[in-house]
Each structure stands twice: as C-alpha cells, then as structure tokens.
Design a binder for these strands. Structure first.
Lengths: 221, 221, 221, 221
DNA sequence: GATGAATGAGTGTTCATTCAT
DNA sequence: TATGAATGAACACTCATTCAT
C-alpha cells in the first residue's frame, strides 16, 4: 500500500501521485491521499511541486519526455514509411498500455470539454480560445491547457510527419494529412484507453502490425 | 440565457442541464447553475430527478433512445455492408457532432478511469469489476457504471453486427470483429470529440464516405 | 456567548462577526469562530455574504451609512463654523468610541501599509497605485482598497468642507485645508483608538468642546 | 534585490527583515521571503533571533534606541518650551517619515485591537489586561504587548514631559497633560502614516514649525 | 556555526443534498 | 406541488518552527 520509504521524498510523492491520479482521475484525487501513500507531510508536496496541478504535470512530462525521444528514435531507425508506422505504433501501444489511466486524464480532464478552452493552431503558433463566446478563460488556465496540449502534440507530430511524407512521396493516397493522422492516432489511443482489446492477448508489435496493415490496405477483402 | 418558461418544469430543467453539463462537464457542473437557467427551485430538481447523476442519465438516455432507433433504421434500410457502414457513420457523425460534449462526459467522466471500475462482457452478461484489487466499488456505483456502459453498448452493437456480418459473408477480411469495430467506432468518435477535423467544412455524409472508403480499402496507394 | 437565536440568520452572523472581528482583527478572525457564535452552518455565511471580506465590508458599511447621515445632519443643523466643528466632533467621538475596534481594522488592516496600495486623489477620481514599483496590485485588491478608502473619505469629506468653508470665510487662518483637516481628524480618531483618554470620564460633547477649543485657539496661554 | 553579502549574517537578516516587514506588514511577512533576501538559511534566523516576533522586535528596538536618544538630546538643547516642542517634532517627523511602515506595524499590528490586550498605567507600573472579560491573555502575549508599548512610551514620555512642564510653568493652558500630549503626538504620527500630507513638499523642520504654531496658537484667526 | 528539508495544524471556500413550509 | 434556506463534509494550500546533519 505504502511507497518504498527508502526512496527520496520527491520520488515517493511522484510514485504515490501516479497511483492516486491513475485510480481516481485528476479532480477526484486528493493531496491527502497522496501524502498518506507517500508517507510525507503535506507541506513537502507543496515545497517540491508547488501545487496539485504542477505535481500532475511533472508526473506526465517526466514520462512523456523519454517516450517522445523513443518514438523519434525508433521512427528514425526504420527503413521506410510502413516500417516507420509500425515502429511508431509498437512504441505507442506499449507506452499507452502502461499509462492509459494517466493519458486518459490528460486527454479528457485536462484537454476535454470541461475546461472551456479550444486550441487553434495558426501556422506555428498555438492560440487558446474560449469554447464559449461569453467567457474568456484566465491566462493561467490558458497556459495550463497549452502545456497539456503540447504534450499530446509532441507525440502526435511525429506520426504526422510520417504520414505527410507518405503522402508527399506517393506512398499514401493524397488527402488531409491532419485528419488521416488524427484518425489513426485516436483509434489506437482509444482502443488502449478502453483497455479491453489489445490487452494481454497480444504483444504490442503484433497489434501494431495489424493496425498498420488495416490502415494501409483496408479491411475489405 | 434563460430557458423558455412556458415549458413544463422538467423540460426546462433538462434543457438547462444540457447547457450546463455541456459547458462544464459533469463534476464541474453545479445544480445551482442549472436551476438558475431553468428558473426553478432547487427542490424541484430533486423531486423530478432524484439527484444530479440521475438527472444527467435522463438527459443522456432521452437523447440516446431516438439516436439508436435511427441507427437501426438507416442500417436496416441500406442495401449492402458498405451502404450500411456509410449509413451508420453518417448518422453517428451527425449525432456526435451535435452532442460531442455530452458524449465525451459519458465516455470519460462516467466510464473513464476515475470511477475505478472495469466492465467485463461474459457471454451476454456484463460484470462490473474493480480496477484495483484492494477496493470493491459500491453496488450503487456499479449500477451507475453499467447504465452508462449500456448506453455506449447500444450504439456500438449495431456497428458490431454489421462488421461481424461483413466478416461472415466474406466481404471483410477475417479478424477480431470486436477490435475492428472498436477501432472504427473510436477513431470517428474521437475525431468528433476533438472537433477540429470533420467540422464545418464537410457534411456528415461526405465524412462518412471517406471514413468508410479508408476503412475498407486503406490509405496506401 | 452565543448570539440571540430568535434573530434571522443574517443578523446573527453580522452580530457574531462584529464580536469576532472586533476581538481579533480581520486576518486573525476565523469564519469558524463566527459561525460557532452565530450558531449557523458555514455555508450560510457564504450564501448571505459571499466571502469573509464581503462580510466584513457589509458590517462596516451598515454602520457607516447612518453614521455619515448623522454627521451631515448635525453639521447642517449647526449655526456657525465653530458649532459645526463641535457637532461633528461630538458625533464622531461618540461613534468611534463605540466602534473603535472595527474602525481601527478599516484604517490599518484594510487601508494600512500591508496591502501594498496607495490611493491618489486626482481631481474627483481616486486612483489606486502600488506602493512598490515592482508589483502591481490585482484589480480585485484595488477595488477592495478603494471601497474602504471611500468609507473613510465619506466621513472625512464632511469635516473637510467645514474647514475649507472656515478658511474661505476668514474664520480660520489660511493654509492647506487638507492637512488641517487630516490633523484634526486623525488626532481624534487616534485618541479614541487608543481608548485610554476620552473614555468613561467624559461625555462625547465635553471632549468635542475641548478638542475644538484647542484646535481653534491653541494650547498656549 | 538582495542584501549586501559581505555583511555579517545577522545584519543581512535585519536589513532583509526591514524590507519585508515594511512592505507586507507583520503577519503577511514570511520568514521565507526574509531569508531569500538575506541569502541565509532558515535555521540561521532562528539561531540569531529565536522567532519571527523577536526578530521584528530587535529590528524595532535597534531603531528606537538611537531615535529616543536623539529626541532627548535635541529637547535638552532647546532653550524654551516652544523650541523644545519644535525640536521634538522636527526629529519625530523626520524619523517617522523614514520608518512609517514599521511604526504603523508597531502601533496597529502589535498594539492594536487584535491582540486582545489593554495597557493600564498605574502610577509607575504598567499592567496588561484583557480587553475582554472571558479570556485572559497568556503571559507570553502580555510580555510581548508590554515590550512594544514601552517602545512607544519611550518616545511619548519625552513629549509628555515638555508639555507637563509647559503647564506647570504657565506657558500652556492647564488641562489633562496626558490628553494634550496624545492628541499632539498622534495627529503627527497619523499624518505621517497616511503619508499624503507632510511629504516631499516640506522639510521636517517647516512641518514641525507649523504643527507647533497651530498647537500653541490655534487655527482660528 | 549554519543549514534547509520536513512538517501539520489551521484557513477560506464549495456544493450536493435535505426538509420544513 | 414547489420551494430555497440551511447545512457540513471535504479540499487545496500556507507558513512558523524544528532538528538532524
């Protein structure tokens, strides 16, 4: 139940936070439960991480950074478009399987409908707009939304570039590369989030192969 | 801002609830805001709907019932598998576009990670299990999760049957029909949830055609 | 100890708040102690008054409004400058004696050094500036400071006009009427705040007479 | 921003404390901000000064001692009552202008309403009483209040003796010398605290002259 | 001597739900 | 039937102080 007390306190807090956020979601998670699990004082959490939201962000970005690095690496190592797609998916499925709970929070509590924000990509700038005409989100909220958006974008962009290249080089049918990328990305993310399919029966690599095969050649006989 | 006061009170509450839940999400929505918009007393909400959660469920199921009926109708009317798939998707995109906020709540606040439950389909029974070994969800929570699960299942099953039939009849490549259905279903749901692609530029019918074309024949040249 | 429970709850809260704020000052006063004395639930305070600061402001402005009205009335009724000054001081001493604790809070917790604001009177506008160059007070804080400033200003301005008229009509020596007014106003306020002199030994009227006699004719033989 | 690091640590802490207390007031000042500015460890503050309150007291008494010495000196050097009064006021205005923020804290956070104490001067003894019948202040609090009271008293007594002598020698009208002194003392203190009048436009000496002229000969023509 | 990591009691505020009228 | 006044459990966050190194 409790976290390994031989670890440094910030590590213990992060481990406890991972458990609690994963089990309860962001809003329902309480700092009290985290400190109980980590067996530290409440002030310690605030000393190290500032507030609940920054603690969550640290947890996420600490996991995202190596994940994105790995995505880049495996994609760079792959020989052609199809291999790149399979490599990306293998890595993604593997990571999302492990962290589906946290990433679901990112996608739906932090970036979902309830924060009242929309993100607009204007060339290379990201603009945060209100979803509703009558209220403007605070600067603080906007920055927060943008931070989580950039987490997802950092993963997404790698897939996007493969697909855009595929279209450029004539390997893929022409079309809106944004839409194509999102459909592929989200169909996988969601199936993992639902954690019913893709689970213990198959290796990440198998799943990735099937996904990409269907993506490229379709489901029709 | 306010809801049409000539309507009966329960209707006014449902209309107000739709606005507030859509704008804020389930947890952040407050009964106070709903009664203000509906211009009714707080007790009235509890008299008619019991509590916040039952109010939300009524809102959702009132929309889901005709939606599912329509899905069934258009699918029944379509001539072959491909036409059925296009018909389903057209109807789904159209509905999800209108209600993306509410359905995002169903998928992620009610059925997401934070309720601590997993659903297992055993033959024709649905069993609610705890996501964690140490705590057992209350019966009340289990029933609640099941209700929202069945909402999604009622939509999902229709697509599933088309695809299963497609596999049976040799129109679709053989494979796990559950997985195939989920991938298709969620890729569409998510792209609507993200409400960036699929938006005002295209008609639901166009989008559906493209989705199904890619689903059947793939993205590779 | 407790407040008369036959009174309506908002009255009970205001009475309890007066006791607690008077005894502890604004910051050290706790809502918990107020609700205990008022014997109401915590939510009730927030329903009626919004937050701690607004509760305090309501308490103050409810007392200030009739006080200022009375100041105006007694001054208007007095025959000449000297009589006006005595009438003002009599009323002021009487009121400040009763509410010295609350008014000390207004003058020093709400308007004192610690809020980081300065007020500048530019013609008929009041501008709130930061006391320090590096930080700008929030709009909310500025509004709050201005509200309490206007409380004091509403009392001050009445004395100011008497003195300005006195200078205009040649009854008082010419000089800076602002400074003269402030010196007089504050010397009285402070002596009451210190609640050592002016206390039970003398009637407010006696004190006022002496103050004004010294103010007009000096202390030298 | 930071304090001169070549100074000994206790000096650095006092300089930092002066800045922070002046800007925030006693309660809102945090030891964290002080140690940041002083660039010392938190334990160092507690080693040198015991606690926050004793640090503040050291700051105040270190400034008060030479101030009181100077008041005594200039008063002793002055030829007659009027010159003594002007000399006192010149020195006081000059000092209070520089330290208005700290002295406001002494007068209103340490000695104001919120500590729940009253001071009674019985012959030459000072007795600390509770302001309220139901609670008795702790000995520690009483001692603390007395310390700050004696700071103010040490300044006050010098003026008091001038005025008492003035009354004895027939230079001043007879009356309560305590009250007369307080009125004079506080009217000046407050006008400096409010730091609007008396500011950069005039030299301390000019101001003192005007104050004493009005004090002695009044404002009436 | 000097440190700063760690603490936890204490605070203002929110909001679903109840129940007397 | 419809109301809305009243509630209180729950939560994020602050900061003076301690003490092992």
């Amino acid at each position: 139940m409790h976290v390994d007390v031989s670890l440094p306190k910030d590590q213990r807090i992060l481990l406890a936070a991972e458990q609690v956020f994963s089990a309860r979601g962001y809003e329902k998670a309480t700092v009290d439960e985290i400190i109980m699990l980590a067996d530290v004082g409440k002030g310690t959490v605030y000393k190290y991480f500032g507030n609940k939201e920054q603690l969550f962000y640290k947890l996420i970005s600490d996991k995202n950074t190596p994940f994105v690095a790995r995505l880049k690496a495996v994609v760079a190592d792959a020989a052609d478009i199809e291999a790149k797609l399979v490599a990306y998916m293998t890595t993604m499925v593997s990571f999302y399987r492990e962290h589906y709970a946290l990433w679901q929070i990112v996608c739906f509590e932090m970036l979902g409908v309830s924060n009242g924000c929309r993100v607009l990509k204007e060339n290379d700038d990201y603009i945060i707009l209100s979803r509703y005409s009558n209220v403007e989100p605070s600067e603080k909220l906007k920055e927060q939304v943008l931070r989580y958006y950039m987490i997802m974008e950092s993963e997404f962009i790698i897939l996007y570039e493969i697909i855009a290249e595929g279209m450029r080089t004539g390997f893929l049918k022409n079309g809106d590369s944004q839409i194509a990328t999102r459909e592929l990305f989200w169909s996988v993310a969601m199936c993992v989030f639902n954690q019913r399919e893709y689970d213990s029966r198959f290796e990440a690599e198998e799943i990735a192969s099937i996904i990409i095969d269907r993506f490229l050649y379709g489901s029709a006989v």
